[in-house]
Amino acid sequence: MELACPIPISDYDRILLAHGGGGKLMHQLIEKMIFNELKNEFLEQTHDGALLPIKGNKVAFTTDSFVVNPLFFPGGNIGDLAINGTVNDLVCCGAKPLYLSLSFIIEEGLLMDDFWKIIQNIKAAALKSGVKIVTGDTKVVEKGKGDGIFINTAGIGELIPDLSINPIHCQTGDVIIINGAIAEHGIAVLSKREGLTFETDIVSDSASLNTMMEAVFEVSNKIHVLRDPTRGGLASTLNEIAQASNTGITLYEKNLPISESVKGACELLGFDPLYVANEGKIVVILPEDAAEKVLETMKEFPEGKGSCIIGKVTALHPGKVHLETVIGSKRMVDMISGEQLPRIC
């Protein structure tokens, strides 16, 4: 029997960049072509990592790939991004990150000094988050077959007892917290991309969040959902959660933490900060009565100083995200289709 491709060829006969943009196209690709074909009880958790029972211990296991261009951007480079991203995925499973693997796919011609700087950032980020790099691999590909360097990681963490964190646990009455200003990473990277150079003081928010979140887990075991709103931004992450839990999410525009510089850059480019990537942010969804203590704890850490409540979970409009605008109206916040493209005028 020949299996037909579930994404009609008439729509797209090739993979586009938008298929990796964190929006609807990427979700279609993952759900129809990967999840459906390879499904099992662990993949079906649709978590940032898989929760695996290994001889009585519960372990979280995740993987990620880093393909950022440019490799060096204000506030970091691809090295710390890889460590922080992997650590944060484990944190979002409610785990204590322990061991990471690193695979480098290096393009012939990468400056040795650049590779060294990347390794130094990896070292510093691993040290800060307390994880060990325990295995790895290095491949070199011909010039033109890579973008300087790609990094693939895997991470293992130990599940913290008494926590049960999963997007499907999102409940009516919960509140939504974020740990500070959004859209900084995406705009910082974009400001250095060829052809789009503009002057800005915006720095990537790349950071590991395990130290802060371990302190949070100490004070509360009531958290329902944790997610890092990376590619596709806050809007895509919240849409995923609303869909997974079949709840409605309402955001308050006036509470959304966005720096003046990011607002300005987004106005200029015609971008919506809700769809711009973050690399040091975490969405915390929990019952309202547990929020105050968690907020207090998060604010004690540099990466949580700007923590605030940005929305609530409701029984209205299940599966969808709405925004109460600054002018008092309401509108839908859809998942982006592909990538945001700078506008004409």
């Binding site: 090739r14 938008a18 789009l196 503009f198 480019l269 493209l341 700078p342 004409i344």
Partner: peptide, 30 residues
Amino acid sequence: ASFGDMLRVPGSQSDLLSVKAQGADVRTVL
């Protein structure tokens, strides 16, 4: 070279993002 919004507009056969995926040199400029 084109403004970003133009890349996804369908022509009669294809669009610029798709030909870019096939190796065409299409650049977004501001």
